[in-house]
Nucleic acid binder design. Structure first.
Lengths: 203, 203
DNA sequence: GAATTTTAGTTAACAGCGTTAGGAAAATAA
DNA sequence: TTATTTTCCTAACGCTGTTAACTAAAATTC
């Protein structure tokens, strides 16, 4: 029966509409406003049918973050390919990361927040491709120094921590203007990037 | 009746025991394991009486974080007073901050997490004394440059972001050894501190 | 085409949450 | 002793996530 295909497609559609509805609610009312009955309302079903598509509420969150990782990875990849100079490349990549965080605030919070310790299981990034992309670019930039894998990881981790810290504090609000925050971010990225291939004069 | 005093003291005691019980549960089971009935169980009462001491669950969280801020402030102040050199002073202060975060992981998460956006109202630090302490120390270190209040705020904010970022990522786990993470932290603090009073050679 | 099975979707319910209302028992006051 | 206040509990409400039981329609089989 070829109708199997159509049914399969329909199922896929419903699945997606659940995810869309969930994220729409989160965007409108924040994570605490999200519940199964509200999702059901939006897709014009009742709550129990959601469980035919997802094991539980948390599974929806996980899939949402997976999509988030995929989108983010794409954006970073694009940013990488718009520049040729390794330094500018890395800066563009982090800028893409930064932009994503604020364009998808709620998603970023679940993806990278310390937060999830308190209201749902820790969600482990399924595909660590942003990680790989950054690691590769950092390796390029440090080619002269022949860094080991461990050294690269440390560099990435430090880099990430700084950016993540800036984003976190920015989201909570620090009383500084948007322009100032942008400037701080750019300065930080530029400074760390340079530190990767220039010798440390303070060492 | 002088028994008024005793009763007052008893009330205070019960109040404290509620806070203690709450934090004990959080330490044992995490934030998601905390609920009113469990607190009541520990203090050997039933849930409704908690509402004679706190308006609601969130009020308990807020008071817990306030205590957290007070403790943290004390620790930072002590750290500051153990060093005389302004550079070392600032480094000791951030180290105290760092140590507090890991000694009181759960508390730190509510105090500074991006997190709380998703499971309870944002908790605004009531007393920003850590902020003031740091601002003052930074001002000392930058005395030569006569920084404006806005500049100081930017420095503090950048500083805090980096440390908070390192802590956050550390709590989630980054696959590096504790010793490595410690080293990264120390390097970062030392580097930023130096950047406050040494001219930027890369500028 | 009729009988049967499978599927899709519903309603009702459970257990656990924060929180509130109302009442029983105990302590205090008269 | 009686009246009043205080202390504390039980019961319940409305909200969660989730499951069970059922119905009606659709698909399949004979």
């Amino acid at each position: 029966m070829a109708s199997k295909d159509r049914i399969q497609r329909q199922k896929e559609e419903t699945r997606n509409s659940i995810l869309d509805a969930a994220y729409a609610i989160v965007k409108e009312e924040g994570w605490e406003g999200l519940n199964m009955r509200k999702i059901a309302d939006r897709i014009e079903y009742t709550a129990p049918i959601i469980y035919e598509y997802f094991a539980n509420k948390n599974a929806i969150l996980i899939e949402l973050t997976q999509k988030g990782y995929n989108n983010l990875t794409k954006l970073i990849r694009v940013a990488r390919d718009t520049e040729t100079d390794p330094d500018l490349k890395l800066q563009a990549m982090w800028t893409a990361f930064w932009d994503f965080a604020f364009a998808n605030k709620e998603l970023y919070q679940v993806m990278y927040g310390v937060e999830m310790k308190c209201c749902s299981q820790t969600i482990v990034p399924p595909v660590e491709t942003p990680f790989e992309l950054f690691i590769n670019s950092i390796a390029d930039l440090m080619a002269d120094q022949q860094p080991t894998a461990a050294e690269l990881k440390i560099k990435y981790y430090t880099f990430f921590s700084v950016i993540h810290g800036l984003i976190s504090v920015n989201m909570i609000g620090n009383g500084l203007s948007d322009a100032t925050n942008e400037q701080i971010f750019k300065d930080a990225v530029s400074a760390i990037t340079k530190s990767l291939y220039k010798e440390d004069v303070n060492a």
